[in-house]
Design a protein around this nucleic acid. Structure first.
Length: 195
DNA sequence: TAGGTGATCTTG
DNA sequence: AAGATCACCTAT
């Protein structure tokens, strides 16, 4: 079952939490892959120094933030990694959720191939760079709809409150105060989590 | 723990 | 307009 209209909610932090347990699906180059979302982070345009579109910042890179929720925001980090985010909220409200890890469900052979690995290990799809690579997501997918044929979400598992961990976000020390916000969520019962 | 890698944005 | 800055990963 496809999740629709989930992305236009105003509370990006709540969305990031609800995304834990949902199924992320891709069909890229004919290869169908599915994974359960196990780790997310919320980024809020309005008042979050860690968000690329913080404080109304508008550049070529941040354009997707100002579109209606429900599209992909993919960008290159450290010259190597394509990081996959879900744009949320209404048009002109610049929020996003970074998907940091998934647990593979289907199409593991394609993930292994893309990652050039022989056998399944926890880092096949843990960590935002690894996840994107495993699922076949790259810069070409920036801005595409998440209800379309290449990338979409399905309802997946209902995860109980007690099984969701909360922490500060990773790798954003430069954002000072905002670096402390408890906006990272993860599924406690999985090994597929970034380190 | 160090270094690779390149688009983005500029005393982070 | 060049160089600092990264929402990271892998391997020593």
């Amino acid at each position: 079952m496809v999740v629709l209209d989930f992305y236009k909610d105003e509370n990006v932090v709540a969305i990031a939490k609800q995304l834990i347990g949902k199924t992320l699906c891709t069909k890229i180059n004919g290869q169908l892959c599915k994974g359960m979302i196990t780790e997310t982070e919320a980024y809020r345009g309005y008042d979050d120094a860690a968000c690329h579109a913080n404080n109304g910042k508008r550049t070529a890179r941040t354009e997707p933030f100002y579109r209606e929720g429900g599209i992909a925001y993919v960008y290159l980090c450290y010259g190597i990694h394509c990081l996959f985010n879900i744009i949320t909220n209404k048009k002109n409200k610049a929020d996003a959720v970074l998907i940091r890890s998934i647990a593979p469900l289907e199409g593991v052979e394609h993930m292994l191939g893309r990652r050039a690995k022989q056998k399944l290990s926890t880092n096949i799809s843990a960590g935002p760079g690894n996840l994107s690579k495993a699922m076949g997501i790259d810069m070409l997918h920036n801005g595409i709809s998440l209800t379309g044929p290449e990338i979409w979400l399905e309802t997946g598992l209902e995860i109980g409150e007690e099984d969701i961990g909360i922490s500060a976000r990773i790798g954003i020390d430069y954002a000072k105060e905002a670096a402390k916000y408890p906006w990272r969520f993860y599924y406690k019962k999985t090994r597929f989590i970034s380190k």
